[in-house]
Each structure stands twice: as C-alpha cells, then as structure tokens.
Amino acid sequence: MSYVDGFVAAVPNANKTRYIEHARSAAAVFREHGALQVVECWGDDVPEGTLTSFPMAVQCQPDETVVFSWILWPSRSVREAGMPKVMSDPRLQADVNPMPFDGKRLIYGGFDMLLDE
C-alpha cells in the first residue's frame, strides 16, 4: 500500500507566489527521488476552531493562509530511501530555495494509507 507524508503550514499571503515557486521546485526533487505525486492546497474554507483547528495548530496569523500538502510515495521503503536524498539535494537547501513561511510552525507526519477508493 502507498505511503503519505502530510504537511500543514501557515504561509504569509504576500508569499503565495513564492510558495508556489518553492513547491514546484521541491515537487520536482521529490518526484526524482521516488514520490508519485506532490499535492499543494491553499486554504479556502478553513474555519477557526474553539478547541482545535488547522489555524490554531499552526498559529495562523491574520495575514496568513493555511496550506495543506501531501506527498504520495509507492511505499514506506521508497520514502525511507528517497527522503534523505531529497533533504540533502542542493536545490532544496535554504540558501538556494528558502521556505517562504515559518518552518517552526510546520506540522508534518508520515501515514500508512488505509483506504484509497
């Protein structure tokens, strides 16, 4: 079964174009190292919660938008082999392709896929 890396971040609205450029560059690198698909979603209907919510989780500020992303891998073993290559790829180093958001508020995790219909 496929494996998914999921991400949630708060991106300054002023950085939307830079974020798209960053994401395109990163997607090419991920795909070169085994990912099947990279999906980036700009928040459109992401309500504030009272106990939990995406905006609360990433401490989203009024001038930011929540971004929801995932990377689809064929398997965890492909992800485990590919991720170190992605992280060390010179095209994704901070001095070449800096993240246009606060990486300290990025939430991420790896997930075994249970259902794909």
Rank of each mutant, 00 (worst) to 15 (best):
A26S: 10
I20H: 10
L92P: 06
Y19A: 04
C41Q: 15
V66C: 01
N15I: 13
D95F: 06
L92M: 15
L106W: 03
F101W: 02
C41G: 15
V78P: 04
S75E: 12
D63F: 00
M87K: 13
A27Q: 05
K104G: 14
P98D: 07
G34E: 13
S2M: 13
M113N: 13
L36R: 14
H22C: 09
N13E: 13
G34F: 12
D116G: 06
V8G: 01
G34N: 12
W73I: 04
G6T: 07
I71F: 03
G34W: 09
A26M: 09
V66K: 01
E64L: 00
G109W: 14
G6H: 10
S69W: 04
T50F: 15
D95V: 05
T52D: 13
D5P: 00
T50W: 15
R76I: 00
M99L: 11
G49H: 12
F101T: 00
K16S: 14
V8H: 02
G103I: 09
V4L: 14
V39D: 10
I71Y: 05
Y108S: 13
L114G: 08
F101E: 02
E117A: 08
G82A: 09
E117K: 03
S77A: 14
C41W: 15
V8L: 06
A27I: 02
H33G: 06
R24F: 11
R24H: 11
G110A: 07
W42Y: 09
K104F: 11
A26G: 07
P74T: 02
Y19L: 05
E21F: 06
A28T: 02
F68D: 07
V29T: 03
D63C: 01
K85C: 13
V86H: 08
D89P: 15
K104R: 12
S53K: 02
F30M: 11
T50P: 15
G82Y: 08
D112H: 13
T65N: 01
E80G: 03
C60L: 07
S77H: 08
F111P: 01
F54A: 10
L92N: 15
P62Q: 01
Q61N: 09
D5V: 06
P55H: 04
L36I: 14
K16W: 12
I71P: 04
I71Q: 01
P74C: 04
D116R: 09
F101P: 00
D112Y: 12
L72T: 08
G110N: 06
P12N: 02
P12I: 03
P62M: 02
V29A: 05
F7L: 04
E64F: 02
V86Q: 07
D45L: 08
L115P: 13
E64K: 01
G34P: 09
D116Y: 07
P55T: 00
V39S: 10
A35H: 05
C60E: 07
R24C: 10
A14L: 05
N13L: 14
C41D: 15
D102V: 00
W73F: 08
F7H: 05
F7W: 06
R31A: 06
A26V: 00
D112W: 12
Y19W: 07
A10T: 03
M83T: 02
L51G: 11
V58Y: 02
M83Y: 08
N97G: 12
A57I: 04
T50D: 15
A14D: 10
G49K: 10
K16V: 12
L51I: 13
E80C: 03
V38N: 08
T50N: 15
I71E: 02
